[in-house]
C-alpha cells in the first residue's frame, strides 16, 4: 500500500477545456477526505475508471468539476464508503436524496462500515461522542449502536478495504447490464463465491426515485483481488 502523501503545494496546471466534457462509469463518494485519499493514493480511481470524492468537498480543486461530470452519466454507479458513525451511515441516503448529489437520478450502493460489519473489530471500537437518531438511512437498532460506539475505516488495513472495493465494483457490474466495465478487464468468474451480493431496503431506501442497497459482505473476509481468467487485452 502506498502511504498517503497529500501535499498542499502540488504544482497545478490548467486542465484542457475538454476534460470536463466527459464522464465516468462509477464514483465512490466517501464521508471524509482521509478515506478518499486511501483510494487516490493507491490509484484506485485510475485502475477502476472511477471518480473518487469526499462529500465535504474534497479534493477541493476538482470537486465541482467532477461532480458535474458525474451527473452527465445517467447510468452512473455510485458507491458510498464510510465509517460506522452517524454521518457515515447516512451518506448513501444523502447521496440518493440530496438534489446537489444524485436525487432521483441513480441508485447508490452503500459499501461502507455499518454496525453489522463491526463484530470482527470489537477491540477497535471507540465510544460515541453524540447520540444518533433513527431515520434518513439509519434504522433504530443501528441508531442505538451508533449512539454508543463508532468504528472508523482507518482501523482496518487499507489493503483489506481496497480489495473489498474492487470486488464490490466488479460484482455490481456483472450483476447489472455489464456497465462499461473498468479498464481492468475482469469478468465475474472469480467474484461469486461466498458473497451475499447486495441487499436492498434495509430500512433506508431513498424516497425520490434513487434507491440505496447495501453490501453486507464482511470487511474481515480475506478478499481475493478479483482477477479473472481473462485479463489480457488484445
Amino acid at each position: 500500500m502506498r502511504a498517503m502523501t497529500r501535499g498542499t503545494s502540488a504544482p497545478q496546471r490548467a486542465l484542457e477545456a475538454d476534460i470536463a466534457d466527459y464522464s465516468f462509469d462509477r464514483a465512490v463518494i466517501c464521508d471524509r477526505a482521509r478515506t478518499a485519499d486511501i483510494l487516490l493514493a493507491n490509484n484506485f480511481h485510475f485502475e477502476n475508471n472511477c471518480a473518487v470524492l469526499a462529500i465535504d468537498g474534497y479534493p477541493e480543486a476538482q470537486f465541482e468539476t467532477v461532480r458535474a461530470m458525474l451527473k452527465r452519466n445517467p447510468r452512473l454507479r455510485v458507491f458510498a464508503l464510510h465509517d460506522a458513525k452517524g454521518k457515515g451511515c447516512r451518506l448513501a441516503h444523502t447521496l440518493a436524496n440530496d438534489p446537489a448529489w444524485f436525487a432521483g437520478q441513480v441508485d447508490v450502493v452503500d459499501v461502507g462500515l455499518r454496525p453489522r460489519h463491526t463484530r470482527a473489530f470489537r477491540g477497535l471500537l471507540q465510544p460515541s461522542v453524540q447520540p444518533v437518531t433513527p431515520g434518513n438511512g439509519i434504522s433504530s437498532s443501528d441508531a442505538a449502536w451508533l449512539s454508543a460506539q463508532t468504528l472508523e475505516l482507518a482501523a482496518i488495513r487499507p489493503e483489506q478495504v481496497l480489495k473489498r472495493m474492487y470486488k464490490a465494483l466488479n460484482r455490481k457490474d456483472s450483476d447489472g447490464d455489464g456497465g462499461a466495465g473498468g479498464n481492468g478487464g475482469s469478468s465475474s468468474s472469480d467474484d461469486s463465491a461466498g458473497n451475499a451480493g447486495y441487499a436492498g431496503g434495509g430500512g433506508a431506501s431513498g424516497g425520490s426515485g434513487s434507491s440505496v442497497s447495501y453490501d453486507n459482505t464482511s470487511f474481515a473476509h480475506e478478499a481475493s483481488d478479483g482477477e479473472s481468467d481473462s485479463d489480457g487485452f488484445g
Partner: peptide
Amino acid sequence: TPMVLAELFGNLYGSDPARHRAASYLRAHQ
C-alpha cells in the same frame, strides 16, 4: 477515461505535472 481521471486526481501529491502525465500514460498500458 482513466487518463482523464489521472489528470483530475492524480496530481494531488505534488509530483511534476508533465512527468505525472507521462507516468499515467505509461501506467495506463497496464
